[in-house]
Amino acid sequence: MRQLISRIRAAISQLVYKRIILAVTILFCVGVGIAMTNMSQLSSTLIASQALQNATLYAQSIKEARTLYSSDVVNPLNSDKLINFSHDYNPTKTTVPVPATFLIELGKHITEKNPEVSVRLYSNYPFPWREKEGGPQDAFEREAIKYLMQNPTQKFFRSEEFRGKPAFRYAEADPLTASCVNCHNTHPYSPKKDWKVGDVRGILEITQPLDTITQKTRGGLKNLFFLLAGLSVLGISGLSLSISRLRQNAKQLEQRVRERTAQLQETNVELLKEQEKSDRLLLNI
C-alpha cells in the first residue's frame, strides 16, 4: 500500500514538473512573438525618425548656406553694383548666381556627390527658364505644395518608392524674406508680382534612400533580439535546473521522513515489547 502511494506521488510530481516546464516554454514563445512584433514596429519608427532627422538637418544646412550667401555675399556686392548677379549662372563667365540659383546649384552638387540623394526646389510659379523642371513633377510634390501653402510652418514627408527604391521624401516651405520680395516683384519675367514677406515662394525637398538606415537599424535590433532570446533561454534553463533541484531536495527530504518514520515505528514497537514485559513481570509479582 505504501509503495503504491509513493508511486502515485512520484507520478503526480513528474506530471507537475512537466506541466511547469511546458507552461514556461509557452510563455517564452509568446514573449518572443510579442518581442518580434514590437521590434518590427520599433524598427519602422526608428527608421522614420532617423530619416526625418537627416532630412531636417539637410534642409536646415542648405537654407542656412543660402541665407549666409544672400546676406554676406549678394547684398554687399549688389549694393555697390560691382558684380553681375544672374540666374543664368555660368562658372566660365564673370557672373554670380542669385540666391535661388545658388541653392539650386548647391542641390545639384549634393546630388552629384550622392547620386541616391535628391535635392529639389520647385514652385507653382517657376520662372520661364525653369518651367520644365521648376514645377511639381509627381503626386508627392503636388501634395506638398498644396499642404505647405496652407501650413507653411509644418513639414510634409512620407516613405514611398522613388526611382524604384524605398525612400524617405521630406519637404518644407521656402518663404520669401524681405530682401527677396522686391527682386521677385520687379523682375520683368517674374510670373507673380504681388509677393509679400512670408509668402511661400517654393518648396525645398530632400529625398534620401532608406536602404542604409534600414540595414543599420534592423541589424542593431536583430542583435538585441538575439541577446534577449539568449537571456530568455538561459532563464528557462536556470528555472528548469532550479525546479529539478527542488524536486531532488523534496525526494531526499521525503526519503529522510520515511526513514525517520520507520525508525520511530521500530522504537514504538520496542517500547511496546518492553511495556509488555514490564506488565507481565508485575503480574507475576
Rank of each mutant, 00 (worst) to 15 (best):
V96E: 09
I104S: 01
L103W: 00
G135I: 03
Y125Q: 14
K132N: 13
S79G: 03
P126F: 07
P115Q: 09
I104R: 02
T153V: 08
Y89P: 06
L77P: 02
P188A: 08
T101N: 04
S190N: 10
T95K: 03
K113I: 06
S179C: 03
Y125H: 14
D72S: 14
N124T: 10
V73R: 03
P97A: 07
R158S: 10
D88G: 05
E141K: 05
F85H: 05
E160H: 06
E131H: 10
D88Y: 14
E143N: 13
P91N: 07
S86F: 05
Q137L: 10
P115W: 11
T101F: 04
G107E: 02
S71M: 14
E116C: 00
H187C: 01
K81M: 12
N182A: 15
E161W: 09
T92P: 00
R201E: 01
G107Y: 03
Q137D: 06
K192Y: 12
F162Q: 06
K63S: 08
Q150S: 11
P175S: 08
F140A: 06
F85Y: 10
G134P: 03
N151P: 05
Q154E: 15
A65N: 10
A178W: 05
R163H: 12
F162T: 04
D88H: 14
W129Y: 13
N78A: 13
E112P: 00
D194G: 00
K93L: 14
A167C: 13
G198Q: 02
Y122G: 02
T111E: 13
R169Q: 11
S86M: 05
L176R: 04
T67K: 12
T94L: 13
N90I: 01
I110G: 00
R158W: 10
L106G: 03
I104G: 00
T186F: 11
D174V: 04
Y147W: 09
A167F: 07
G164L: 11
L68Q: 12
N75R: 13
